[in-house]
Structure formats: C-alpha cells, structure tokens
C-alpha cells in the first residue's frame, strides 16, 4: 500500500471544506449553543450540591466543554458521503481507482479533521474559554496521553461512520440510520453525560463498547481520572477496537462491493 494517493485525497477534502466557509463560522456558534445548554442544565442540577458522583461542578463543565471541543476535531460526515456515492451512483467511478475505498475515505476524513483543527477546533476552544471557566489538563503527562487518545477517538469514529455509510448498499435511504447512530454515539460516547454517571448496568455495558473511546476516555485522561493501569487498559482497548472496526469495515465493504458489481448498484 502506497501512501501518496491517500495524501492527495486528504488534500482534496481540505480544499472542499474551504469552499464551505460559512459552515465554520456558524459551526462555532452551534458548539457554543450546545455547551451553553448543558452548562445551564448542570448548573441547575448542581445547585446546593458540592459534587455529583465523582465530579465537582467545575469538573463537569470542563468535561462537557472539552468534550464538545474535541468533537469539532474527530467529527466527520463520511457516512453521508459514502451513502451519496452509492445512492447517486458515483461509486462506480471511484471503485475503478487503484486505491482502497475504505482508506480513501479515512484519508479524506483525516484531511477534514486536520482542517477542522485549525479552522474550527482552535476558534471554538477560544470562544468557549472566554465564556466558561475551564480547567487545564491535570498534568503534562495527562495532556500528552489525552492527545494520543484523540487518535483512537478519530479512528473509532471514522471506522463506525464507514460501516454505517456502507449500509447504503442495502438501503435506499440512510438518513434514519445516520440519525439513530448520531443519538446513540452522543449518549454512549459519554459526550452529554459522563459514563460513570449512567445507571450501573448501562455503565457496565458501555465500558465494553467502542463508543466511550470517542469521548469519555480522552476526557477522563484529560482530567487525570484515568492514570497508570487504567490508562494502559484504555489504550489497549482503543487499539483493539480500532483494529476490529476497521477490519469489520474492510470485510463489510468487500461484501457490499460484490453486491454492487453483481447487481450494478
């Protein structure tokens, strides 16, 4: 596998996004709105209480804010794009290219994330920092581990989206599925509420699912709540789930591609 064509795809994704400039101005506002809603809900919930679960109010706001800030980075729409490729018939041309379709999409997503990092993540972080009292990472050690965890955050999210997008081969419309995934990821990744806050059974189940790697794990590392052995477990889990999901995507795509070529889409 040569890497050069994938860099080209990443570059094109970067350029494509530039064309949608207004989305980034408004995107920052969207994220401010999201953080604000949860800020006020938590504020009301914390009224007269020192802490809830293992979080103080300040920690909770940091958790929610940083959660939304990193979402600006790992988020991508490859599920939609793959579905469009398939449903609008662009897929035939793309499949003739001498590149792996899954990696092409992941490369595009990476290009998108790289762009978002500068055009979106940094401005959003600054805007949120001005308005809300955030805490710094627990330590330099935590900060570095947090950055590393973001790689898994990106990979798990991208691989999941690839799987969902590929379902379009078997469906005529995929919007419902994308919406369902959206809500599922929002909750089970711990973006809205920390997983340790969940009712026990749900929390236990969530600890074995890949979704936590998207948001909960990096955030706990950021706040220094995951250290030592737990940190190692998290990374192993991240690596394991990335391999499993990418492998699953590879297998699913091959199956779907056969259906596409046999039935002509």
């Amino acid at each position: 596998m040569t890497v050069t064509p994938y860099i080209a795809f990443a570059r094109i994704a970067f350029l494509k996004i530039l064309a949608y400039r207004l989305r980034y101005y408004t995107g920052i506002v969207t994220y401010m709105v999201n953080v604000s809603v949860y800020y006020f809900i938590w504020k009301a919930l914390y009224r007269g209480k020192e802490s809830l679960g293992e979080f103080t109010f300040e920690e909770m706001i940091t958790y929610v804010s940083v959660g939304f800030i990193i979402r600006t980075f790992y988020f991508n729409n490859i599920d939609r794009e793959i579905a469009n490729d398939i449903l609008l018939g662009h897929i035939a041309a793309k499949m003739t290219r001498p590149v792996n379709y899954q990696w092409m999409n992941i490369a595009q997503a990476a290009g998108e994330s790289f762009f978002r990092l500068f055009m979106f993540t940094v401005p959003t972080a600054l805007a949120i920092l001005v308005v809300f009292p955030l805490r710094a990472p627990a330590s330099l050690h935590s900060a570095l581990a947090f950055l590393a965890a973001l790689v898994f955050s990106f990979m798990v999210f991208a691989a999941l989206n690839f799987l969902v997008g590929t379902c379009a081969v078997y469906l005529h419309s995929i919007l419902g599925l994308i919406r369902a995934k959206y809500f599922l990821v929002e909750i089970l990744s711990g973006l809205l509420i920390p997983i340790s806050f969940f009712p026990e059974t749900l929390a236990e189940i969530s600890r074995w699912l890949p979704f936590q790697l998207i948001s909960f794990t990096p955030l706990m590392i950021y706040m220094g709540k995951f250290q030592g052995e737990q940190l190692v477990t998290s990374f192993l889990l991240g690596l394991g789930w990335t391999l499993v999901l990418v492998g699953l995507g590879h297998w699913f795509w091959r199956k779907a591609a056969t259906k596409l070529t046999v039935q002509g889409g």
């Binding site: 064309a19 949608y20 400039r21 207004l22 989305r23 408004t26 995107g27 506002v29 969207t30 401010m32 709105v33 999201n34 604000s36 809603v37």
Partner: peptide, 15 residues
Amino acid sequence: DRVGVSPPVFNMIAF
C-alpha cells in the same frame, strides 16, 4: 454558500 445557519438554531430548540 451552502449556508450552515440552520444547525446552531436547530440545536437551540434544546434550550
């Protein structure tokens, strides 16, 4: 441009 003004407002429904 493909204006993205709706999403922030849509999210405000949650308020």
